[in-house]
Structures are given as structure tokens and as C-alpha cells.
Design a protein around this nucleic acid. Structure first.
Lengths: 150, 150
DNA sequence: TGACGATCGATGCAAATGCATCTATATAGA
DNA sequence: TCTATATAGATGCATTTGCATCGATCGTCA
């Protein structure tokens, strides 16, 4: 019987939505002001950089980034057109392809991080102590699906 | 010297962005599955309902909802076309207008809340205690601009 | 092997968003 | 009062998102 949310639940929800939107917008603005691509590019380049030489399949990016499949498809097309990633056929699955970040893509990610990291530091790092940040992470982790263990 | 974010800051940021996106998507999906309009409609109808008979000026909605000005302009056009709100000329400012929710709009909001509220209850209310929800709200409040006092 | 449902990724079309700019009115200052 | 600047809200155009669906390949099971 969780039909009607409690006042604390409503308040937490409202703040979560509002604060996350506001911070996201600021981080995007900072990138724009520096003439850099949007955060979505960073997310993909980051995942691909972590994946290393092996690269990732588009459907793996879909899982990891929470972008819709058609969104990843088009985002990759844009990234490829811009030389940030390359697509390789994959041997054992004729439907698929492997996406790998290029040197240019790595460089883009590096330059984005210089700005994005600063935003994170300013927007959250400077406002809460490390203990508070950990507490926040833990609470948010419990809202995930599936919930984080920790 | 807040140039480089600390690991706890990065983790909190990542969770905040990821969790909020995931929860938002679920709430949107629930509305869609019930054949109801998107959350943006709810946000506007909610603000207008709270404002009462006096209604609100579009620029006030822009401030309260965090939607961009052009977005509010078009959202109101859609809402008006659908009979959810009405626009009235405002006496002392020839540029502006006052927007008021209609009965139909109030009814739409009510039906949306039945679904939206249930999502909130399930997605956050059932996962954290009230004390934890309050703690979460307080931490998020400190990330706002300007930070919440409490 | 052959048929069939599932999965991978792309895409046509409609709707929404972002950006720049426009018109109209209001306000401040010479 | 006349002019310059600021503010309210709308809109043309390009980009992005959402939705449905498609073509192609894979895996399974008879």
C-alpha cells in the first residue's frame, strides 16, 4: 500500500529532480561556454576509453549509459562523422560492430574533463564534505535499480 | 583550488545524475502507460493550481519550473490548444498575459497525480525511511543555488 | 537442415528542444 | 517629451528525441 507518497518522499523527490536538472544544466552550460560538445559525448567517450582497445558494442553502451538504443545509434553516427570514434565489424556476429575511441576522441574527452571536472568540483565538491558526499552517494545508491549494496 | 573533483564528489555526482535520470524515466513511463501527458504538463498545471484564481505570468512559470522561456511559451500554447489552461490579457502590462488553469486542467492534474504520486511512493518512499528521506532532502538542499537553509 | 522467434542496429516521420532573433510594450534618463 | 535600453513573449530554423518499424543476422528447436 504505497499508493500515496509521504510528505518526506515528495520533498525528496522534488529536490532530487530539481537539483539534478539545475546542476546538469550548469555543467552543460560550462561546456558550451568553452566551445565543447555536450555531456552525452563525454559519457560515450568515457565508457569507450574505459573499455580500452577492445571497444564496446553499441548495445553495451545502451546498457551503461541509459541512453535509448536509437539515441546511441545516432550519437555514434555523429561521433563517427566527427572522427571521435571508429566502427569495426565484429568477427563472430554479423549483425554487430565494435566501437572504439580514436586518438581524437581521447583528446576530446580530456579537454571536456578539464571543464566538466571543474564543474563537479564547484557544484558538489565545494558544497559538501567528503563524509556528506559519501552519505549522499549511499542514499542515492539505495534508490537505484537494483539498489547498491555497500 | 577546486579544479579537480575529489573521488567522493565524482561518485556523488555520477549517482545523482544516473539515479535522477532513471527515476524520471520510470515516472514518465508510468504516465505514458496510463495514457497521460508528460511530466512537464504536470509541473505547469501544478504551479498554476497552486497559484489559484490569480494565475501566473509566463515568466513566473519560467522561474519556478526551470524550463527555458521558449519552452514555456510553446508548452503553454499546447496546453491552451488542449483546453488545459486559458490566457488572459493583463491590465497593467500590455506585453504580458496571465495564465490560469481551467477545470479540465485541474482534472488532468488530479488524474496525473494518481499515477505520479504512486511512482514517487514506489521509487523513493518505499526505499528509504522518513528520516533518510529528510537527510537526503537536506543534502540536496545544500546543492541548490542558493543553498537551502534548514 | 529449415523454420521461427529473438536480438542488433538503423531509419522515416512526428514532436520537442535549442538558438537566435523578432515584435511590442515598458521603463529610465537626457 | 523623446530616445535608448530592458523586458515579455513568440517564432523560424536547425538539431535532437521519441516512436514505430525495418532489414539483417543469430540462436533454438523440430
Amino acid at each position: 500500500m504505497t499508493g500515496i507518497p509521504s510528505p518526506p518522499a515528495i520533498k525528496a523527490w522534488a529536490r532530487l529532480m530539481r537539483v539534478s536538472r539545475q546542476l546538469l544544466e550548469r555543467a552543460e552550460d560550462a561546456l558550451k561556454d568553452s566551445g565543447l560538445p555536450p555531456l552525452a559525448w563525454y559519457d560515450v567517450l568515457h565508457e569507450l576509453a574505459e573499455a580500452g582497445e577492445g571497444g564496446l558494442r553499441p548495445f553495451q553502451l545502451t546498457e551503461r549509459t541509459l541512453f535509448a538504443q536509437y539515441n546511441i545509434s545516432r550519437l555514434l553516427a555523429r561521433l563517427e562523422a566527427d572522427g571521435q570514434v571508429e566502427k569495426l565489424p565484429v568477427a563472430d556476429d554479423g549483425r554487430g560492430q565494435t566501437v572504439r575511441v580514436t586518438d581524437k576522441g581521447r583528446e576530446t574527452r580530456r579537454r571536456m574533463w578539464a571543464v566538466y571536472g571543474r564543474s563537479i568540483a564547484e557544484l558538489v565538491g565545494s558544497r559538501l564534505s567528503n563524509d556528506e558526499l559519501d552519505a549522499l552517494s549511499a542514499l542515492l545508491g539505495r534508490l537505484r535499480d537494483p539498489p547498491a549494496l555497500e
